[in-house]
Nucleic acid binder design. Structure first.
Lengths: 205, 205
DNA sequence: GCTAAAGTGGAGACCGTCTCCGTATAAGAT
DNA sequence: ATCTTATACGGAGACGGTCTCCACTTTAGC
């Protein structure tokens, strides 16, 4: 074996362990699980049976758990793109609207997202019990968005200087977690207006 | 049996089925379960094992489930008194404080209650999944309280006429459901102030 | 005391979670 | 084309929680 080629380090994507290319079936299964999960979560809520999801996706339970070790990991993966879109909307609003209206529009968009996929809200909150660090990135993205919007609105003088952006976010998550009653979306949007009104500089009394 | 006494309708508490007095042991067991549940819920959250609770209370699982057919029923029973106290505080504040401050004080008291017993908030919300009608009475009590406070504050001109009291309540429940981060109580109270500021009549702009 | 109504308790059926490991298969080397 | 081996698969089964069922016990009322 002294004639063997020198290490093909030129082709290696990763310098360290010289990894092998990921298997095609693994990738396929992962996507199928994700697909089925999305439907299952919207249909049955966050407590949908994972074994059922695995079955419907045509994979064994072991496969599902290998790709997504915990329920949280799965939820996070499912809603990662949604959260990214929501965070991205911040930029668009910031460009096309005056500061205060951009903030208002984004907050109402948040409500819309939660209305469609009501699992997002608990996913952004640490939720009851386990303080998993999995949602950290999602949280960071959303925090970044509202931070930018509030900062801009403060600079333009539309919002009190001492307002904590995170307070607003917490209120938003909270309001969104309460999903009872049919007129919830209207109520949530009225609340956005109240929150913004309450965040303006105190010109009165 | 023709000599038997005439129906002792005089002593009957209930006219219809002439019920027998409830058994002493049943009452005792019920209270023990309630006692243990209260501790278990504060220690392990709303998902504490019911079988464990039964075991610790020294009763069989069957007994627990007979008294409280569902988890919700048990939670409701445990926090019924707390909710009653909270609702009762409305009267006190209404007497001793000006309308707006009474509302503010009550809302902050709400936050304090939730901080101590973080299960109250989900109990007031329908929560994810099943729309059980069990919390109806609790909800009604709390709704009544905030309704009275808001109405008074509207009449004194401190609050916009078109404000939906239930919107405020929903925000409160929502904010209270978000229990992450150590400075949550401060944040929640800042939010109460924001909500109230946002509910004032629009003298500006 | 007697008796029927009321209540008890725990075995066990059921269901969801998650692990373990023997088997299958794709990727890369020859 | 075949071999080798890292990678992935899947489902049986251990585990733990929920909830029911019913043979047995206890109590209230006479």
């Amino acid at each position: 074996m002294s004639t063997k080629h020198p290490k093909p380090a030129v082709h290696a994507k990763r310098p360290k362990p010289a990894r092998r290319k990921p298997r095609a079936d693994a990738q396929r299964n992962r996507e199928r699980v994700l697909e089925v999960s999305k439907q299952a979560f919207t249909r049955y809520g966050a407590s949908a049976s994972l074994d059922d999801i695995a079955k419907e996706a045509g994979v064994g339970a072991g496969t599902l758990y290998r790709h997504f070790p915990t329920r949280d990991a799965l939820i996070e993966a499912v809603y990662r793109t949604e959260v990214e879109k929501l965070a991205a909307a911040e930029g668009k609003f910031a460009e096309s609207l005056p500061p205060l209206e951009a903030l208002r529009a984004w907050m109402k968009l948040f409500v819309d997202y939660v209305e469609a996929k009501h699992i997002i809200a608990p996913a952004l909150n640490t939720y009851a019990g386990g303080a998993s660090k999995l949602y950290e990135t999602s949280k960071t993205q959303i925090s970044g968005a509202i931070n930018a919007l509030v900062k801009r609105a403060i600079q333009s003088g539309d919002i009190r200087k001492d307002l904590e952006p995170f307070d607003l976010l917490r209120a938003l998550i909270g309001v969104a977690s309460v999903a009872s009653s049919p007129d919830w979306p209207q109520s949530a949007k009225r609340l956005v207006d109240i929150l913004i009104a309450g965040s303006r500089p105190t010109t009165q009394n």
